[in-house]
């Protein structure tokens, strides 16, 4: 028998003005564009390397990317700023309602936007509908070591906590949900709440300039809430009403 709790809800159960659970603050002024977050994220989340040719054709699979902005034409180019862009973990995510088999779902426990890899059939509608263009698709079997002998050794550094994805499925940033779960389990076994700053995402951990901060946005005492509340924060494409959980800081 079906009961209502089996039917996944589309969208979060919070409205505009309210806060989600986990959030991030990225300081554009501190970011140096060093790409350490990109490398750390790829290591942590078993993100596949697609090779030079596919990468040049817009098929790189990084869950976080550094967007560079410049003025002028080559060779008179002046770099103006750069921003890391990752899944904004929208409260009203446009990717969720369009997925026909319910592979893009909203997790009620973590208030995150999750991709269920083994439910994905690869219609790629979610990626089209994502205004931030942060979803990446497994165009080929990038993780099959029979196709690329270099992967035989590279496989040894896979993170055992994260699924290795096969061809034909969509994937995206999860806010390192495996780290969230690990910290929650540890805190639960010790009979306490997860403390602010006890753990962080791979990108935030790797950032040498401390431009990325991760934590609970529903706790006003947390560092991420305090940074976001400095009146110099903005959100990407806020006008679309997607309720993103990542705040960008500008002009400090």
């Amino acid at each position: 028998m079906m009961n209502k709790s089996n039917i996944p809800e589309v969208g979060a159960n919070f409205a505009e003005g309210e806060q989600g659970k986990w959030g991030m603050v990225i300081d554009r002024d501190l970011c140096t564009g060093c790409q350490a977050c990109v490398a750390a994220c790829s290591m942590e989340n078993n993100v596949a390397f697609v090779g030079e040719e596919d990468s040049g054709y817009g098929r790189s699979m990084h869950w976080i990317r550094i967007e560079r902005f410049w003025e002028g034409e080559y060779p008179e180019v002046k770099m103006t700023s750069q921003q890391p862009v990752l899944c904004q973990q929208c409260g009203h995510a446009p990717c969720e309602p369009v997925c026909p088999p319910f592979a893009a779902v909203h997790s009620q426990a973590e208030q995150l936007n999750l991709q269920v890899y083994n439910r994905c059939v690869g219609t790629r509608y979610c990626a089209n509908n994502c205004p931030y263009q942060v979803r990446v698709f497994n165009w080929r079997d990038y993780t099959d070591d029979r196709l690329d002998p270099a992967l035989v050794t590279l496989k040894n550094q896979y993170n055992p906590d994260v699924t290795v994805r096969r061809r034909g499925v969509m994937e995206k940033c999860t806010f390192c949900i495996q780290r969230i779960h690990k910290a929650q389990d540890k805190a639960k076994s010790e009979g306490r709440e997860v403390a602010d700053g006890e753990f962080t995402t791979a990108c935030a951990q790797a950032c040498p300039a401390n431009a990325i901060t991760f934590g609970r946005v529903d706790n006003p005492e947390s560092l991420v809430s305090q940074l976001a509340g400095q009146n110099r924060g903005s959100k990407l494409l806020e006008e679309l009403g997607t309720l993103p959980q990542v705040t960008y800081l500008n002009g400090g």
Binding site: G58, Q133, F137, W139, R140, D141
Partner: peptide, 10 residues
């Protein structure tokens, strides 16, 4: 082989 042999990309 996967959709890589088609032209679709991001």
């Amino acid at each position: 082989e996967g959709l890589g042999i088609a032209g679709v990309n991001r």
